[in-house]
Every structure is written in structure tokens, then in C-alpha cells.
Amino acid sequence: MDVITEKRAEMIFISLTGRIDNQSAETLEENLSKIIAEGARQLIIDCSQIEHINNAGLRVLLNLAKQVLDFDGRIALHSPSQSARAIFDRTGFSLVSRIYETREEAIAGVAGSGVLSASRNDRRFVTK
């Protein structure tokens, strides 16, 4: 599993790739908690490259959402792969977290105004 993050203005773009299982979920949680601790409050998560996500991975995303909301932040998941979409649906995850079809919709959802105002890449790093 890889976690790719990219910062644009106030938004943090996160791309999850590969298989998110019990082992990789721990790493994912550490990485995401670090991002929150650094002050990120608007998270856009790209799920298009997720091969599989188990309930440990879903719990991490749910906890992330709780943390962000505790800080009055916003989070949006978008472009789920076929596998991720099926898992979000059958586990009821999509009942509590809206899954956007595209990155643009997710950005609009987080921005609230529907207007994308982020600047070009401020920062980009890859965590494995």
C-alpha cells in the first residue's frame, strides 16, 4: 500500500493505492494521524487505486473522518475503484460517508462553495 499526499493551498490531497489490510492499515493510520497533527483540516482522498480495503482500513478512514470533524475540518473520498466502491457499499460505509464520483466534486464538496481555489503544488511527498 502506498499513501501519496499532495498539498494545495488549504487542501491535502491523499491518494491511496494497493491493498489496505490489517498490516498496512496501521501504517496508514500513522501517516494520516501525522497529517492531521500537522494541521491538515481539508482532506480529499482519491480511492481510484485501491485494490482492496478490509474493515481495518475502513476503520482507519472512519477514525480519520472523526478526527477531522473534531477540528471542524472536512473530508471527502472520491473516484472509488470498482473494488473499493463495492466494499464501501456492502459495508454500509457509504451510508455515513459520501463518496464523490470525481475529484472535482469532492473538492467542491469540501470547499463548500463549489469553487476550486487551490493553487498549484505547494508540497508533495510519498510515504510507503
Binding site: 474493515n55 475502513l58 476503520r59 472512519l62 457499499d89 456492502r90 459495508t91 454500509g92 460505509f93 451510508l95
Partner: peptide
Amino acid sequence: TRSQMFLSLE
């Protein structure tokens, strides 16, 4: 089912 599955995740 979906609601209970979600509870199960937790």
C-alpha cells in the same frame, strides 16, 4: 444489513 455491517466494522 448495511447498517449492521457498519456497526460490525466498528
